[in-house]
C-alpha cells in the first residue's frame, strides 16, 4: 500500500505539471493556431530565472516567483513580436520551424547565461511527511496543490472572462471573431505571454525536485504534447485529465511493470491514441471543436 501511495503521489505530481504545461500550449494553439516547440525551453528558462533570483540574489520565494512570471510573460510577448508576428498567414510548417529555431536559440542562450552544469534550488517547504505509510516530500504536495488551483483558475478564467470568451471565439471561427471586433493581434501577444508565464510556473514548481539542467523542459514538453494529443486539442478538461493520466500511467503502472521502460509508456499511449482517434480521446470532430 505504501509503495502504491508513493507512486500515486509521484504520478500525480508529474501529471499535474504536464497538464499545466499542456494547458499553456492549448491556450496558445487556440488563440493563434500555433504549436510552440519552444515551450519546453520556456519551462527551463522559468526554472533558471527562479534559481538566478533566489540563489544568486537572495530573493524570497514569493517576490522571486512573481518577478519570474512577469519576466516570462514579457519573454513570450517579445518572442511573438520578433519572430512569429512577421510569419502571420504563413503555412503551419513555416511557423513550426520558426518555433524550433526559437527553442534552439533560447536553450543555447540559457546555457551561455547559466552554464551547462546541473543546478539545484531549495524547496520553500522543506521536509517530508508520511501518508498511508508512504514518505512524501512536502514539495510534491505543494506542486499538486498549486497546479490544481492554477488549473481551476485558468478554466474559470476562460469560462467567465471577456478575454477567455474572445479566445474561445477565435478558436471557434477566427474570421468571424475578427469581424465581430476581436483584436486578434493583441490576443496573439497576450496568449504568448500567458502561455510563457504558465511554462515558467511549471519550471519554478519542478526545479526543487532535483538537479536541473538544460533538458528539464524538454521532457515535460513531450509529456504535455502527449496530454494535448490524448486529451484532444479542443478541450481544457480533457487535456487536464489526460495530463494527470499520463503521470499516473508512467509512475504507477511503470512502478510495477517494465520498470526500466516506464518513460516510454506516455509515448506508446500517445501513438495509440493518435492511431485510434486522431482528434484525441476527449476531442470533438474538427468542425465542432471548442475550447
Amino acid at each position: 500500500m505504501a509503495r502504491f501511495v508513493a507512486l500515486f503521489l509521484s504520478g500525480m505530481t508529474d501529471g499535474v505539471v504536464a497538464a499545466l504545461a499542456a494547458v499553456g500550449l492549448l491556450v496558445l494553439n487556440k488563440a493563434t493556431g500555433i504549436v510552440n516547440f519552444a515551450h519546453g525551453d520556456l519551462i527551463t528558462l522559468g526554472a533558471y530565472l527562479g534559481i538566478w533570483l533566489i540563489n544568486g540574489h537572495g530573493w524570497g520565494y514569493v517576490p522571486a516567483v512573481t518577478v519570474s512570471l512577469v519576466l516570462m510573460f514579457a519573454v513570450g510577448v517579445v518572442m511573438e513580436r520578433v519572430s512569429l508576428a512577421p510569419l502571420r498567414g504563413k503555412s503551419v510548417h513555416v511557423v513550426v520551424i520558426a518555433t524550433l529555431g526559437l527553442a534552439l536559440a533560447l536553450r543555447s542562450l540559457v546555457g551561455i547565461w547559466q552554464g551547462t552544469d546541473p543546478k539545484r534550488l531549495e524547496s520553500p517547504v522543506p521536509g517530508r511527511s508520511t501518508v498511508f505509510g508512504a514518505t512524501v516530500t512536502h514539495h510534491r504536495l505543494l506542486i499538486i496543490a498549486v497546479a490544481l488551483v492554477v488549473l481551476v483558475a485558468v478554466m474559470g478564467f476562460f469560462a467567465r472572462t471577456s478575454w477567455g470568451r474572445q479566445v474561445r471565439a477565435v478558436a471557434a471561427d477566427r474570421v468571424m471573431a475578427q469581424l465581430a471586433g476581436v483584436r486578434a493581434g493583441t490576443l496573439s501577444m497576450a496568449a504568448f505571454g500567458f502561455s510563457a508565464a504558465l511554462a515558467g510556473l511549471c519550471g519554478l514548481l519542478v526545479a526543487p525536485l532535483g538537479a536541473i539542467d538544460l533538458n528539464l523542459g524538454f521532457g515535460i514538453m513531450l509529456n504535455s504534447f502527449a496530454a494535448m494529443v490524448i486529451g484532444g486539442s479542443g478541450s481544457v478538461g480533457g487535456v487536464v485529465i489526460a495530463g494527470v493520466g499520463i503521470g499516473l500511467i508512467e509512475r504507477v503502472i511503470g512502478g510495477y511493470v517494465l520498470t526500466d521502460y516506464s518513460e516510454a509508456f506516455p509515448f506508446v499511449v500517445m501513438i495509440l491514441a493518435i492511431a485510434l482517434r486522431p482528434q484525441g480521446l476527449f476531442g470533438q470532430r474538427e468542425h465542432a471543436a471548442r475550447l
Binding site: 520558426a98 529555431g101 526559437l102 527553442a103 534552439l104 536559440a105 533560447l106 543555447s108 551561455i112
Partner: peptide
C-alpha cells in the same frame, strides 16, 4: 558557444 544560438536565429 554562440553556434547553436546562430543556427536557431538562422532557422527563424
Amino acid at each position: 558557444q554562440w553556434t547553436q544560438v546562430i543556427w536557431g536565429a538562422v532557422l527563424v
